[in-house]
């Protein structure tokens, strides 16, 4: 035993000599430093909540991938991904401040804004509309005018686009409300049905109909490009922390790019969310959906980055909505859409 220690033990007056205090001071200082730095690190991650507009599926693959691959963390955000679905409309959740970021169809977002909820689009994901009308080739429908007088099922929330289509070609159809399935169409209850390319169209193919058995009208090819999914945030959130919004969009877009580059890995992530939410779907359907998302989200011009909302597309939607009487006016493009970091 070291003689000084021996002395420590035996000497009551020198119970805590100088070297001991020095060690104690250093220990405390180091602990404080660690706490401070960790606190500092924790402080660097901002929190945010994100709500997709529907149940977990590959339609939101980019977001799930960004979360699972730590991209949000990389950009300094601690994101909580909420579970969406028909019982949790995204617009209402945004208005109620239950979520910081949501995805919405452009047409829906314009209507929500018109109702007074001051939301803005900080990143337009889909460049092309995925909406189409589909008919059985055997029913004699080959061109738009063949729909004259036929029964066509339309979604209540998304009929502006097809109605504009009918108006464009001057046809009057017998509209039927479309429910949650395409079985009415499959059983022959209507002559044509509404479908999203990435979802219902696959369901139809997956019921045994081949593509050559179907006639399709992709509305964006008929001049009615109503691009759908975009990232929306309340204006006040945006003003409070623009950097957060920018970081969220960047991380999300990076997540989407990752998902497009490594689709099988992204599918693994999506299927995990699907299973947790017990959604009745399967991997081939999600694979199709992810591939179509790539078609719809990827800009036509490769030099243009993801997330751009062309003014023309915005105006097409806004004006059509106004014409259909669903909105009181057309919001300003500049107020509605802000993409990218603040210009210095």
């Amino acid at each position: 035993m070291h003689p000084s220690v021996k002395r420590l033990r035996s000497d009551p007056a020198h119970r805590f000599p100088l070297p001991f205090y020095w060690v104690l001071f250093v220990a405390v200082a180091v602990s404080l430093l660690l706490v401070a730095t960790s606190g500092f690190c924790a402080q660097a991650l901002k929190t945010a909540t994100f709500l997709p507009q529907w149940r977990p599926q590959a339609q939101f693959a980019g977001f799930y991938t960004a979360y699972e691959k730590g991209l949000y963390r990389k950009y300094g955000i601690d994101v909580t991904v909420l579970r969406g679905g028909p019982d949790r409309p995204a617009g209402a959740a945004l208005a109620a401040r239950q979520a910081d970021f949501v995805t919405l169809f452009l047409s829906e977002a314009v209507q929500v804004r018109d109702k007074g909820v001051r939301l803005i689009n900080i990143g337009q994901l889909m460049q092309r509309s995925g909406f189409l009308l589909v008919a059985k080739a055997g029913s004699g429908i080959a061109a738009p005018r063949d729909l004259q007088g036929r029964k066509v099922s339309l979604w209540t929330s998304f009929q502006v686009q097809p109605l504009a289509f009918f108006r464009k070609y001057g046809i009057a159809v017998k509209p039927v409300v479309q429910g949650e399935t395409v079985n009415l169409f499959l059983r022959g209850g209507v002559d044509a049905a509404s479908a999203m390319w990435y979802n219902e169209y696959y369901t139809i193919l997956n019921s045994g109909l081949n593509e050559e058995d179907l006639t399709t009208f992709f509305l964006d090819r008929h001049g009615l490009n109503f691009p759908e999914d975009g990232i929306y945030v309340l204006e006040e959130t945006f003003r409070r922390d623009r950097a957060l919004c920018d970081a969220f969009v960047r991380a999300s877009l990076e997540g989407w790019q990752y998902a497009f580059d490594r689709p099988e890995e992204a599918l693994d992530i999506v299927m995990a969310y699907v299973r947790k939410a017990n959604v009745a779907t399967n991997r081939p359907h999600q694979r199709w959906m992810l591939a179509r998302m790539r078609d719809l989200i990827g800009p036509k011009d490769p030099s243009v980055p993801m997330g751009v909302l062309p003014r023309q597309d915005f105006l097409t939607v806004a004006e059509e909505l106004h014409r259909a009487g669903l909105t009181g006016g057309v919001p300003s493009y500049g107020e509605f859409y802000v993409f990218g970091p603040a210009k210095p």
């Binding site: 029964k151 039927v176 409300v177 479309q178 429910g179 949650e180 399935t181 079985n183 009415l184 059983r187 022959g188 209850g189 209507v190």
Partner: peptide, 13 residues
């Protein structure tokens, strides 16, 4: 229920 399959399909067919 008007838009549910069990109602709508027999109705339309």
């Amino acid at each position: 229920y008007f838009t549910k399959d069990w109602y709508q399909i027999p109705r339309e067919l």
